[in-house]
Design a protein around this nucleic acid. Sequence first.
DNA 1: AATTTGCCCATGATATCCCATAAATTAAGC
DNA 2: GCTTAATTTATGGGATATCATGGGCAAATT
Lengths: 168, 168
Amino acid sequence: MDRFLSNTINKVDKKGRVSIPASFRPILGNTSRLYILSSVDQPTVDAGGVELIERKEQQLERMDPFSEDYELYSFVLHGDSTELKIDGEGRVVLSDLIREQTGITDRAAFVGRGHFFQIWEPERFRAYREEARKKVAEMRRAKSGGAQLGAGGGANGGVAAGQGEQNT
Amino acid sequence: MDRFLSNTINKVDKKGRVSIPASFRPILGNTSRLYILSSVDQPTVDAGGVELIERKEQQLERMDPFSEDYELYSFVLHGDSTELKIDGEGRVVLSDLIREQTGITDRAAFVGRGHFFQIWEPERFRAYREEARKKVAEMRRAKSGGAQLGAGGGANGGVAAGQGEQNT
DNA sequence: AATTTGCCCATGATATCCCATAAATTAAGC
DNA sequence: GCTTAATTTATGGGATATCATGGGCAAATT
């Protein structure tokens, strides 16, 4: 249990509180603080422990300082970050900043991203997720030239394609 | 016995639990954690130990962290994965995520794939398997220009052996 | 005084643990 | 080679333990 995985949708109560998924809590450590960074590309925020900020700063340093991306990243990183307090039940109060950034009202989707997680407005998450899956599927198809069975990650399945639809 | 072989169909009980085939358990090691990755191509999920995720993360690290591909791949990898707890009897409860992805309701097919295994809705597995066989046969025919050797009726090219039903 | 914010407790719904049992595979014995 | 005893499995169910969620209340803000 050392990375943020899976996704869950939790309710935001009248006081603006949401439960951080229980499976995410231990990964954050013993802290009672949750760090939040706005995403520049999507209507979501990144969340995690302090190391999240550090990591992002390191990323920033690796970017071209004259690019527009750098400017944006830098601006958002230092300007739009927040620190939330985690209460005894593992909840946080979503700030106005987060609401504006994500569009969240009464429900929030928590999405594991490995060393951090994201908080989305459920509907937007659903849409983006679908799109992402579709694109990854295309990516995979392009790479393997169509000969792929299963998502074995380098697996040597050795069997020809076969499309098989997603769900029903 | 160090790779996942063969396939079995087990029942999902009212609580949503399924037994992981006993022959698969020792291969997972001493863990009580089963990692699940959903396939973007087929209505199935890949299952295995942490290595399964780590392997994919290594692929990620070889990509450009600022590319859209990286973003999408990471999003799907971490956001659509799950970690299931294996109980004392070697069972796991299938999450909603898995149900949606696979279409599983009351029975689940466990299919060995070497260094990981898959979980399918039995009917879909049967259908996909047949299709896969057919394509393998075609592939072979195409390659050999019609001259085949030892590709007799019962041969099941490349796909895990065994009948759709448990033992026989 | 009227809101917020932080802390504590309550509760229904799941999830997890533990024990029971029948089916089935393996080992043992004849 | 068969038949039976001994072990594993798969599966079920009850008893707890966790979790998400709601509400109360008092200290801190405004």
